[in-house]
Write a protein that binds this DNA or RNA. Sequence first.
DNA 1: GATGAATGAGAGTTCATTCAT
DNA 2: AATGAATGAACTCTCATTCAT
Lengths: 215, 215, 215, 215
Amino acid sequence: MRHQPLRLFYVRFLLGDESVKRKEGKGLKRDAIIDAAVQVFSSKGYHNTRMEEIAIAAGIGKGTIYEYFESKLQLFQALMERSLQTYYSKMETSDLQQLGFRERLCHLLEANFSFSRENKNLARIIYWDTDVIDEELKEWGLAIRKEKEEKLKAIVGEAITRGELREVDSYLTTLVIMGCLESMYVPIIFEDLDRPADELALQVVDMIMQGIGNK
Amino acid sequence: MRHQPLRLFYVRFLLGDESVKRKEGKGLKRDAIIDAAVQVFSSKGYHNTRMEEIAIAAGIGKGTIYEYFESKLQLFQALMERSLQTYYSKMETSDLQQLGFRERLCHLLEANFSFSRENKNLARIIYWDTDVIDEELKEWGLAIRKEKEEKLKAIVGEAITRGELREVDSYLTTLVIMGCLESMYVPIIFEDLDRPADELALQVVDMIMQGIGNK
Amino acid sequence: MRHQPLRLFYVRFLLGDESVKRKEGKGLKRDAIIDAAVQVFSSKGYHNTRMEEIAIAAGIGKGTIYEYFESKLQLFQALMERSLQTYYSKMETSDLQQLGFRERLCHLLEANFSFSRENKNLARIIYWDTDVIDEELKEWGLAIRKEKEEKLKAIVGEAITRGELREVDSYLTTLVIMGCLESMYVPIIFEDLDRPADELALQVVDMIMQGIGNK
Amino acid sequence: MRHQPLRLFYVRFLLGDESVKRKEGKGLKRDAIIDAAVQVFSSKGYHNTRMEEIAIAAGIGKGTIYEYFESKLQLFQALMERSLQTYYSKMETSDLQQLGFRERLCHLLEANFSFSRENKNLARIIYWDTDVIDEELKEWGLAIRKEKEEKLKAIVGEAITRGELREVDSYLTTLVIMGCLESMYVPIIFEDLDRPADELALQVVDMIMQGIGNK
DNA sequence: GATGAATGAGAGTTCATTCAT
DNA sequence: AATGAATGAACTCTCATTCAT
């Protein structure tokens, strides 16, 4: 019982069909519910959040949520999917392929930092609430992580081949970079670290590339 | 509402207080319960774990847990405290003070890696289940993290002063190092990364100190 | 709170009242809704049927049902009334009064069997779904049954007086006959018993009249 | 998670084990819950009965029911099973095999009548609440009925062979007899028909065997 | 001290009904 | 008149906690 009248909707939308406004409203309401869910889930955690709280936060009735999502778990999954879309669309901008490793890394870090800052609640969920909500969801979370890791590892490997990096272990390097990304969430989210994202990125890239050792 | 009768207990124990013997027996069973709790909580998460499951895992009756812990939350808190004690006792061995930064860092990484490997369940809880179980617990988790961070930052600052490191931002450096520590948990815990801890540590320290850039 | 504007409606209809035409249109849709309700209620039972299913079966919107019926219960009541009207109109044909007991009984049985066969859904509701949907409805169902019983008992009494039957207890006889009627529903409705209704009726009447004992 | 420590229980019971009393109490409580369920279900119907009402009727807490039954539906199934056991144990007394058809039929009718009278609530459920509670349950109900029918048909067939009955259709005869049984429930249950069961049985058997026709 | 049967507050979910469009 | 999105009362079931044994 998923909502997938997408194609028909699109046609009507192009034709300017009146009925679309209603459908459009439905899409908007769906989003509004996810927005509310992000707020509540991120501050209280999945299990401590009652469906009614989300409804209240969204300014709607409890039952209305079930018009758009089949269950609490599905709402959370939808939230995660939309969040990751937002996250990835922020990461993968256009013509990164052309850039050198240092620039790509710098962009990656900066995008991560600013995403975290602008979407604190989302980020909190993406990085903290990977709790064991559901076995399937856990697997999914790990798979997402693995995918991210593989992409990064390919980039690292390529950079080594190109001679941009010295002969390091590409896997460990990947882990170190991911660690640097992740280590910043806590201060950004919980401690309101307010240094400019680009400056932060530059400094961290510098440390990663040159190392912190004296000479 | 933290459990801190530890010191008083210790005094009585040294004095041979009668009540301690009972407490000692109690202590053993208490520990057994926490052991069981570690198993179950770490594999199913806090909210998906039922008190009865812990009781069964501990081979005792459900009601007995309440003889030793006031509530599920308090049991989890006690577990976290004991886990962190174990963790820290592993980290802060003897005469690290004398060593140079590189050696201390290396030791820290190695200790972390081997701890994670030897105490997968514990590590899983410490790094993953800091979920929003309870507002108070969340604050406490963050405070612990902050404390860790401060200690590390002091060490970094000192190393810079001593000229062991170049003039980097000690705070960012701390975050990067913590990121490197944390980034290894997932592969170790979930993917059974099996490289020797000391070798891993050496490689990562090398990357951190020299950087990964070519020249 | 029974629906009984039936007579008034009939008068207006004969007089050509304008309001009737609207009502007539309404009457058609009303009937269509009841038709749909018969389908759904009879296959899923009262409580397992959702108003929306009836609406879908009727090819109309959910809210429209409420233009014609005040509530789910009232829809069911209306359905029962119409069903019983249909049932009785099938039973009480023309000049049965003239016939002898055997013929009347035979007609009754045959009419019942063919009604059941031709209106399986209706029959299922009439004989099976008199479940405890509502206290008032239960009383009503019992009253209907009692009425049926009284009619039959009068016929039986008369037949005894006329000497068509031997001196049996007219009440018990009535119950036995009703039992024979009812006992056929299950095989007809659920097992598609396909013997011709008239043949079935003859055989059963024969058993009732002559008994099954040898000699 | 069914309760089936029956064998172990039995051994302990024979040995007079103390722990049995508790288990025995459990069995008693299980029965008490079913008793309460019979009361409530039979007067309000399955769907109008709330679990809490059953709990209150049983003088226990709502959650306690779930210690003994997995769900509302399972409670109802258990109730039906126990009811049918009670019913059948009443029907199938000892040495009916020896008796002639007339005597067996008489016994069957009498047993049915007195069962209905003594277990009005049970009977109400067995004969009236075969509502579409659940598809599976409906099938089961029909299967039970079919089984009953087959047994009776065999007896009828045998009686015909022995020449106790004239050459009637054994299937129809079976249906007629079942109809006679069933037709008595309503007056007995809802109208407190108070004639002695044995007398009723004799009269009905007489009608069935000799017929009601004059001569 | 140990137990586990009993409990009931609380949560997710359903669906008859309403009402703005 | 017709609709179906929105609603919230009502219901089942769970599980931390209690307490009599």
